[in-house]
Amino acid sequence: MKDSAKICAGIVLYNPELELLQKNVNALLEQPMEQIYLYDNNSQNAAEIAEIFKNWDNVEYIRNNENAGIAHALNQLIDYAYKDGYDWCLTMDQDSVCAPNMITEYIKYLDYPKVGLICPFVLNNGKLSLGEFKNLHLDDITEIKDPIDCITSACLNNVKVVREIGGYTEKLFIDFVDTDINCKVLENNYKIIRVNTTYLVQQMGNAHKVPFFEFLQKVTKKDVFRRMKVANVYTDQRLYYSARNSRYVRNTYKDHGKRTGVAFMFAYYCYFTLVYPMSRSRIKMWSSIIRGHRDYKKII
């Protein structure tokens, strides 16, 4: 199958930085794939995006007239891939950069038994440098058991499998959309594998370093402090969706993983309370979190 498999890529757009977007599209065009879809969730700079890519070979720009959310956009990309005869679709964020060897490495595992999703090792917000990653000496692949350990950016979707299990849950709109699809994949006895011979450089939120945890990581070498030394700074609206959708995931799936549980999420938000910029209103933050937790009932 891997010798004849057709692979495409899809990038979800929302007010992208144009120079970075062109860089990322060029990087994807150098990978062994046939087509790139750009699905625009009604960006304010949509006319500029359309003008830039109107004459690019193997790049199709698709504009939605409203922002229907990341899950809807991902389903549209999977549908385009299916209609055009592609077996696999690489889903990408507009501001993430994939390694040059990503698809080449992924191709080695297209025949892996019952595989639904293939993802890379993620270098997130400078928490781990490329040099440190290479020195980890990981096994070539890891089977993902915790559904939070695979994100949609740089994830190679088995188009047939994703359609079979019902696709992405559109009522989630944004946040925990990837955890939700991962739960579906694992619940339906398909597998998620992480290919550790390739990587993704990802920026989440407006991250900033936390000197105290950076110091503890240097002294103790503990992985927990490496994760905490850079804080992802989200808007209150994102915290709302995080609280709402994490509750949806843990109440919908039996094996949702520990990092979507009540205790972990509460500790997560307490961490934000401690490390977020002082300009942020903690009252507004927690109001959004509590409102999201309550509004879960509106999407069940």
Rank of each mutant, 00 (worst) to 15 (best):
K6N: 07
L18F: 01
L20G: 01
N26E: 10
P32W: 01
Q44E: 13
A47V: 11
E48D: 14
I49W: 02
E60I: 13
E60W: 09
I62V: 14
N64K: 10
N67R: 01
N67P: 05
A71V: 07
H72K: 12
H72R: 09
L74Y: 10
N75W: 09
L77F: 02
I78F: 06
D79L: 13
A81H: 07
Y82G: 02
D84E: 14
D84V: 02
G85Q: 07
W88M: 06
L90I: 05
M92L: 13
S96V: 06
C98P: 11
C98M: 12
A99T: 04
P100R: 07
P100K: 09
N101G: 04
N101S: 13
T104D: 11
I107Y: 05
K108G: 04
Y109N: 03
K114E: 13
C119G: 08
C119Y: 01
F121P: 00
V122H: 07
K127S: 00
L128I: 12
S129T: 10
K134I: 03
N135A: 06
L136I: 06
D140Y: 11
T142C: 08
D146P: 09
P147K: 07
C150I: 07
L156E: 02
V159F: 08
E164N: 15
E170R: 08
I174M: 15
D175C: 15
N182C: 15
V185I: 15
N189F: 14
N189M: 11
K191V: 02
I192P: 03
Y199Q: 00
Y199T: 03
L200Y: 02
G205A: 12
H208K: 15
F213E: 02
E214L: 07
E214S: 15
F215I: 08
K221T: 05
K222E: 11
V224G: 00
F225R: 05
R227W: 03
A231T: 04
N232Y: 05
D236P: 04
Q237Y: 12
Q237M: 12
Y248C: 03
T252A: 10
K254L: 10
G261H: 04
Y271W: 14
V275D: 00
P277V: 09
M278Y: 12
R282M: 08
S288W: 03
R291K: 15
R294P: 01
R294G: 00
D295V: 02
K297F: 13
K297L: 10
I299G: 10
